[in-house]
Design a protein around this nucleic acid. Structure first.
Lengths: 339, 339
DNA sequence: CTGAAAGCGCTAACAG
DNA sequence: CTGTTAGCGCTTTCAG
């Protein structure tokens, strides 16, 4: 009673072999319903808890899918993880989540930690990694899926979109509505690689249209907070007051910028237009509602989960890595005079 | 090359025993620095990855702390997890995270899944659980910590606060500022137990002051979204237009309520006051800023982590369960005429 | 500081 | 449908 019971004890109590107990705890094993029922009851009474660690070692299957995200507290990444998790659950796979804090060095450390747990697949947010991290992932001999990006040199499978292209779409939208003096608010690009990609996309898109791409406000380390968005807007209004429209690297920053306008009595979109990225809930609720881009986070999670489930089922059917591109969608709302 | 190298291969390549390789990968083991360095280099060249599964089985230590939260996408819970994780990291403990979706049945299922992985401790959000979940946790023979609540019958350790008392503080604040017709916006209380506790605290506090506690607007399942907060405010303004102040079960709902007022041209706090809970970032950024209550999520995570690290280190020093009560703090801002 | 033997709790592989 | 045997990769334990 003091020590935790094992299958051996359960087997003894039920009058069967250990192997039969093992079968009673798996779904696919061939065992009579009666026996299974009886063994499970005995196990329950003994307070037996299946030991997944021992099972994993012997079967060489951990049931883990390792997942890295920059931040736990981000609705976009959370939606991807929730959808991924929902798709993996029926396949008996559990998500082992780690956060990189938008830091490639931390990502490297984390990947090392996660791989020790023998995950069966690895889903990582982003397509930029340290050399060592790349090597670790390639050596791991498990399916790797990069998401939220369209990497130049994919490690394996990809379920993502082009952050740069998304900004192109947004610049096109603003340009079509007559805005020409457009600014960009973003974080320190040496950290947030997706943010850096968006900034690059903004600059390129502006140049392509013969517009001035130099209205760039850089705040601190990502994620850019609402408060930092407000601070950036304050700087923008003080230093470049003729700016006609602002694109923020993500919706929270865009909302922060909006609040700064409210505080100053500047009308949005009449005096200045504001747009974000991510289609966070706040973009649809704020007054005015914010124009944004929906990258379909849940869809990415589902597709990644689907891909993993398939790859792990048909272990041999490898016809090279899969690339699934998601098309982010412009959501035009009142903050840019639309909707 | 095709199969993953084990310690055996590393040992052979380094010309030492498997045991010595094992020691080279642990921090406390007695081994010369030279040998360790050499072995690690050999291991790196072979692409060796330490197998935590085998290690866990033999040592009977998983290095996992299982943690359940209602939702991944919630800044409050995320802050608790981040702080907890930060405190456990130096102790070599990894967080194994699961989400309950605000559902006690799902929590029960999840706890069962998590316990199979042999976690060394269990941190759960909330103090309400199914009977079966309680039994599983008690049988697990590991430290259990309930957070974000002050349970009537704790399972073991507690690092939390009284949700009901927090509402008492908020009602006192509004009452002191002269508001008497106060409403409460919350979710379906059969799911969100903390929300239900807050509602109960609201009703009791109102009654204690001889105020009418019947202005209760119930929206859908938790978490109550910004949109639902706005919808609830719309109902409130339509059906009980003489309401002077509104308390929302959490800040996002409070912000939603605020936006509904903006849309209708109702001034906050001049026409109606609004307060929330959680001290989410938005409460400090919105215009006007929202009065709220800070439950110090990070502090709870730190304390829980500290407690676990201590319990697992001094395995025998059990002087009964620990209760750490956090005192939530009122943050008075413009939305209730303060600040 | 280093090594040899034994075994953690379960399941693959085979037999019946 | 059920049982026997062996062993997953590491670390505990004991010796040197």
């Amino acid at each position: 009673m003091s020590t935790k019971p094992t299958m051996k004890e359960v087997a003894a109590a039920a009058g069967v072999s250990v192997m039969t107990v093992s079968r009673a705890f798996r779904s696919d094993a061939s065992i009579s319903d009666d026996t299974r029922e009886r063994i499970r009851n005995v196990a329950d009474e003994l307070g037996y808890v299946f030991d997944a660690v021992a099972s994993n070692l012997r079967s060489q299957r951990s049931g883990f899918v390792a997942v890295t995200i920059p931040s736990i507290n981000n609705a976009n990444f959370a939606d991807t993880v929730a959808a991924l998790s929902g798709r993996l659950d029926p396949a008996g796979l559990q998500v082992l989540l780690g956060r990189t804090n938008y830091d490639m060095a931390e990502e490297e450390r984390l990947i090392g930690q996660l791989l020790r747990r023998q995950p069966e697949a690895l889903v990582i947010t982003g397509g930029h990694h340290t050399e060592r991290a790349r090597r670790m992932m390639q050596n791991a001999a498990i399916p790797v899926i990069e998401t939220w990006d369209l990497p130049q040199e994919p490690l394996g499978n990809v379920v993502g979109f082009s952050n740069a292209d998304a900004m192109r779409v947004m610049v096109a939208h603003l340009s079509a509505r007559g805005y020409r003096k457009i600014a960009f608010i973003g974080g320190d690009s040496s950290f947030d690689t997706r943010g850096a990609d968006r900034r690059r996309g903004f600059v390129t898109a502006m140049q392509d249209r013969g517009l001035d791409p130099s209205r760039l406000i850089t705040v601190g380390r990502p994620p850019v907070s609402m408060r930092e968005g407000a601070a950036a807007m304050a700087i923008l209004l003080d230093t470049l007051p003729d700016t006609e429209a602002v694109i923020a690297v993500a919706d929270p920053a865009a909302f922060g910028a909006l609040t700064e306008c409210h505080r100053r009595g500047i009308r949005v979109p009449d005096d200045i237009a504001i747009a974000g990225f991510g289609n966070f809930e706040i973009s649809g609720v704020s007054v005015p509602a914010l124009t944004t881009i929906d990258p379909f986070p849940a869809r990415m999670g589902e597709q990644a989960g689907e891909l993993i489930a398939g790859l792990l089922r048909g272990k041999v059917t490898k016809n090279g890595p899969t690339l699934i591109e998601i098309e982010p969608q412009l959501v035009a709302r009142a903050s840019t005079g639309a909707g």
